[in-house]
């Protein structure tokens, strides 16, 4: 499977293929609209982008940061085009600016504005940024990459689709390095194997203690 790097406006294929994502048609030929990778053998003409903002999608789990408090609820930064809002009616906890929450996207309208549901407040931990389009690489096929990272660092990790990783406990420095490696090499093949090797070399093959059943979600004050 060979992948080709394309830039916006570069030809993807002259054949008639089904249209995938991040492509457009002009004069019967298919072109890319972003910088990304093309698999020429696939049935679909599509580009896997390497850069880009998070476009909200229904049922995604995201990680948000509370930015402001209003009379009826809270303003939430979801790392997308617009900030979102959660109503106090749906919450039992008292939040304050800086609180980190996980939420599910219940509804997206044609302006990409979202409605959030199943809100849970994180208890401590920290968030690390990752390019939103590289989140699938960080998770891997059926969570393979994430399992390797979890096993190596011994941290509790939750990955939000909006390009935020929440983590608590374990080897956070190694986790940060691992995320940087995924960012840097997301477009190169066999990343999962290389990541396993990387973590092996960093930890010296020592197994960390299994993630302790630490409190991930809490109520109110931290």
């Amino acid at each position: 499977m060979t992948k080709r790097l394309v830039i916006p406006g570069e030809l993807v294929t002259e054949e008639r293929k089904k249209l995938g994502s991040h492509v457009f048609v002009r004069e019967g030929k298919i072109y890319s609209d972003s910088i990304g990778l093309v698999n020429d053998e696939a049935d679909f003409a599509s580009v896997v982008p390497l850069e880009g903002k998070y476009a909200p999608q229904m049922n995604d789990v995201i990680i948000g940061v509370i930015t402001s408090e209003r009379f009826a609820g809270y303003g939430v930064d979801i790392n997308s085009f617009y900030p979102s809002f959660v109503s106090k009616k749906e919450l039992r906890e008292v939040l304050k600016p800086g609180s980190i929450i996980s939420a599910k996207i219940m509804k997206v309208n044609e302006f990409n504005e979202v409605e959030l549901g199943s809100i849970r407040l994180f208890f401590g931990g920290e968030i690390m940024p990752v390019t939103p389009v590289k989140v699938p690489r960080l998770i891997g096929k059926e969570g393979s990459m994430l399992n390797i990272i979890k096993g190596g660092t011994g941290s509790n990790i939750i990955v939000g689709r909006n390009g935020r990783v929440w983590a608590k406990g374990g080897n956070l420095d190694l986790l940060r390095k691992s995320i940087e490696k995924v960012e840097r090499e997301a477009h190169v093949d066999h990343l999962t194997d290389r990541m396993a090797e990387f973590i092996q070399s960093q930890t010296g093959g020592k197994k960390p203690e299994a993630p302790r059943g630490e409190e991930m979600f809490g109520e109110g004050e931290q």
Binding site: I7, P8, G9, H22, F24, R26, Y31, D33, S34, I35, P49, L50, E51, G52, K53, V133
Partner: peptide, 11 residues
């Protein structure tokens, strides 16, 4: 703009 991943018809 291309580096930001914004969809473009062309450079």
């Amino acid at each position: 703009l291309a580096d930001a991943g914004i969809p473009m018809r062309d450079m």
